[in-house]
């Protein structure tokens, strides 16, 4: 049991780390801006989900696949699939954002809270 936990942590570490390395290499070795790279990763996540490869990856790496931005895309693909199954054409519209709603709302609310609580600080090297 303990061994299984340790292994799942290691798998999350290695897969998550490898995805970050891929992004870092794209930043350093290509002329792509970080914003474009993030967009590519989230779209790649949707594509992985659409192809049915995202779920096995999460099954293997757990948070190593769901925490990086492809997880956002993967969750959206799954949300869309379920929404289209339930609601038909309307699911095309309601699916994407509802799948990402908890994370997006959390970021918005915490962002607003931070804006009220904190003040931007002088920057040091």
């Amino acid at each position: 049991m303990t061994e299984e936990i340790v292994l799942s942590l290691v798998r999350a570490f290695v897969v998550g780390g490898a995805l970050c390395v891929a992004a870092q290499l794209l930043i350093d070795l290509t002329a792509l801006t970080p914003a474009r790279i993030l967009v590519s990763f989230v779209c790649a996540g949707v594509a992985l989900g659409a192809l049915g490869w995202y779920e096995p990856l999460v099954g293997f790496a757990g948070a190593g696949a769901s925490v990086p931005l492809i997880g956002f895309g993967g969750a959206i693909a799954r949300g869309v699939r379920e929404a289209v199954e339930e609601e038909g054409l309307l699911g095309v519209l309601s699916g994407p954002l509802s799948a990402a709603s908890a994370g997006t709302a959390a970021a918005l609310l915490f962002g607003y809270g931070a804006a009220l609580l904190f003040r931007s600080k002088p920057k040091r090297t």
Partner: peptide
């Protein structure tokens, strides 16, 4: 490039491992 990649691996991996540690 190598240093950046190593740091990205360690920090990114650590964040995901923390995520997994919370998930279990």
């Amino acid at each position: 490039v190598v240093k950046n990649a190593a740091r990205a691996f360690l920090v990114g991996g650590a964040i995901c491992a923390v995520g997994q540690g919370l998930y279990i």
